[in-house]
Amino acid sequence: MSARRQWNELPAGVRRAVERQAGEVMRTESLPDGASCEIALALHTKAGRIFCKGGRTEGPKGWLYRKEARINPFLPDVVPRLHWTVERDGWLLLGFEYAPGRHPRLEPGSSDLDTIADGLATLARELTPCPPVDVQPFTERWRGLIAPEMVRGETLLHTDMTPRNFVLGDRLRLVDWSAPCRGAAWIDTAFMLVRLIRAGHSPADAERWAVRVPAFADADGRAVTEFADALVRLWTRMQVSAPAAHRGPLLDAACEWHAYRLSRQPAPI
């Protein structure tokens, strides 16, 4: 991840271009967690706050900012609206509706779990069929990891189900749509299920939560098991090639879920 930059570190021309869109920026507030980008700021203007994210156009994330800007108009209102983009002097910045709130808690007993399940159910319903926007099929993203028919579908998926991408305020919001794809409607719930295990749920309890989402409840059991297996192999590969502190516990949770899925399969005759 690139080093996070502050407002006064941006070129003067970029700041002026932003203020032509947003109005005079009276002060800024750095947002340290969440989006993995060079700039993540709350801009305080006379008209209110704006969330500004982005980075250098030639940086490793430049294409992700363009993808998020392109897809935002097709997303439901649970997603903060993109108000403007600024591209100047080698920088690309996106200005979004500011979504105040906190990140949800996933541990057993959290009252936030009902809200997340309801939100995922609504998203799967509203984003099926996939809106008319060019996104990568999940079958391509996981090529070689899983049989295509297991994950093929016509739902627009978020795919990055970290709790940092959910904001709970007056309602649930889902941010950072930089890695969308098109696939089976249950996939986002499966990704979140692993996060619940990471937060202390047993695999059985996590699945009992997941079946509250109709798309997951209707999923083919064999496809879900194959998904868990592919996820373990993918995250193992990533942890070997680019070890990260956060990935180890997630890999452990995925392994625990996969073992649970296998334990429920009938023994061969």
Rank of each mutant, 00 (worst) to 15 (best):
A3D: 15
R5C: 14
W7R: 02
N8G: 11
P11M: 10
R15V: 09
R16E: 15
R16T: 14
R16D: 14
Q21L: 06
S30M: 13
L31G: 03
P32I: 08
P32E: 09
G34D: 09
L41V: 13
A42T: 09
L43K: 08
T45G: 09
R49G: 07
G54D: 00
R56G: 07
T57A: 09
G59V: 09
K61G: 02
K61H: 15
W63K: 15
L64V: 11
R66T: 08
K67P: 07
A69C: 12
R70H: 14
I71E: 05
L75S: 10
P76N: 00
V78I: 15
V79C: 11
P80V: 03
E87G: 14
G90A: 08
W91M: 05
G95F: 01
P100A: 07
G101R: 10
R102F: 01
L106Q: 05
E107L: 13
E107Q: 15
P108W: 07
S110P: 13
I116R: 00
A117P: 04
D118R: 01
A124P: 00
R125V: 07
L127I: 07
P131H: 05
P131N: 11
P132R: 13
Q136D: 13
F138D: 00
G144R: 04
L145K: 11
V151L: 02
R152A: 15
G153F: 07
H158G: 10
T159F: 10
N165Q: 12
F166M: 12
F166V: 13
D170M: 11
R171L: 09
R171N: 05
L172W: 01
R173G: 00
V175A: 04
V175Y: 07
D176W: 04
P180H: 04
A184I: 07
M192T: 03
L193M: 12
V194Y: 01
V194S: 10
I197W: 04
R198A: 13
A199N: 12
A199C: 08
A199L: 06
P203R: 01
P203F: 04
A204Y: 03
E207H: 05
R212F: 05
A215S: 14
F216I: 01
A219P: 06
D220K: 06
R222C: 11
A223L: 03
D229S: 11
D229F: 00
A230I: 03
V232R: 02
Q239L: 04
G248S: 12
G248W: 12
L251M: 02
E256N: 11
W257I: 02
Y260L: 04
